[in-house]
């Protein structure tokens, strides 16, 4: 059981990391972004391109400490984040911004994001094909922790990076002027405008944060499993469940929602087939929707 809980925390950390950007954009622009998953895939593949590039140049091929991946993967975080942010800004400029300004029903932008998801996935298939890819073919070292818990060393890296990213975003939102303005915008967009906060400018910042987290989530997810074109799309529904649990726009809610879902899914395998894991996430989500439609925590904080 202890082992399942630890696995749940690992899964939950990735879900939490993936869902923060999603809930932030939802809170600020009202967009429930169906392309979020495929943007995660793009982040993972971009890092793959740079990793291969470094390896072809014959640089950064040494393994990072006990981990299975090489220094190239670490360096690839930077271009992957930049490309992910630029992509998010381009999509927003050409798809969601026109819809915002026409005052469209939120479902319209939701359906538009389905279109964006297909375009992105189509390009991923066309460029990289349907095969699986790996950041490295190295052996994955296993660590033995107390209570008989077996863990891949990579997973420690994943959890640490995920929580560092989450902590930085939290600090940004809690402490900086721009972060507070983002929260103000999510809270009461009308009053934010009256206070002189430039909505469109702040939305760019929101996409910047979301794009950064998307790329990091994609790479970590790629390290944990492997790269395949559907990886982000399949990942999307648990993310939806996590942010519904957490409540609209709530970062802390998404964190706790993600962790709860991760743990619930892994622990359920003690009694149920592992293939039921996604259904567990949905059943929890539906139960929360029916009994607490504003999320577990109701009124949101950050």
């Amino acid at each position: 059981m202890a082992e399942l809980i630890v696995y749940g925390i690992i899964l939950g950390s990735i879900i939490a990391l993936g869902s923060i950007g999603l809930t932030l954009i939802w809170g600020i622009t009202d967009l429930f972004n169906c392309a979020h998953g495929d943007q995660i895939t793009v982040g993972a593949y971009t890092a793959f391109v740079f990793t291969s590039l470094f390896s072809n140049m014959g640089i950064l091929q040494g393994k990072v400490g006990p981990f299975s991946f090489c220094w190239g993967v670490l360096l690839a975080f930077i271009p992957a984040v930049i490309i992910s942010v630029v992509l998010a800004l381009i999509i927003d400029r050409w798809v969601y911004k026109p819809l915002r300004h026409s005052g469209a029903h939120f479902i319209t932008s939701f359906i538009a994001s389905i279109g964006v998801a297909w375009v992105l996935r189509g390009f991923i298939y066309i460029i990289w094909g349907a095969d699986f890819h790996f950041y490295s073919s190295g052996l994955r070292t296993v660590a033995f922790l107390p209570l008989g818990i077996k863990l891949r060393i990579d997973e420690i890296f994943i959890v640490v990076i995920a929580w560092m990213a989450v902590a930085l975003v939290y600090l940004f939102l809690a402490k900086t002027k721009k972060g507070k303005a983002l929260r103000a915008l999510a809270d009461n967009p009308g009053l934010a405008r009256i206070s002189g906060i430039d909505t469109e400018y702040m939305i760019k910042w929101a996409w910047g944060i979301a794009g950064t987290l998307i790329a990091i989530a994609g790479i970590l997810y790629g390290i944990e499993t492997q790269l395949r074109p559907e990886m982000g799309w399949i990942f999307l529904l648990p993310l939806f469940a996590a942010i519904i649990l957490g409540g609209k726009g709530s970062i802390t809610g998404a964190l706790i929602g993600g962790l709860l879902l991760g743990i619930a899914q892994q622990v359920s395998t003690a009694w149920l087939l592992p293939t039921y894991k996604p259904a567990i996430a949905f059943i929890i989500m539906i139960a929360v929707l029916i009994f607490r439609p504003k999320g577990i925590f109701g009124r949101r904080h950050i």
Binding site: R183, A184, A186, D187, N188, G190, L191, R299, I302
Partner: peptide
């Protein structure tokens, strides 16, 4: 109405 930011 709605003249404050409730979660701030």
């Amino acid at each position: 109405e709605e003249n404050i930011f409730p979660s701030l």
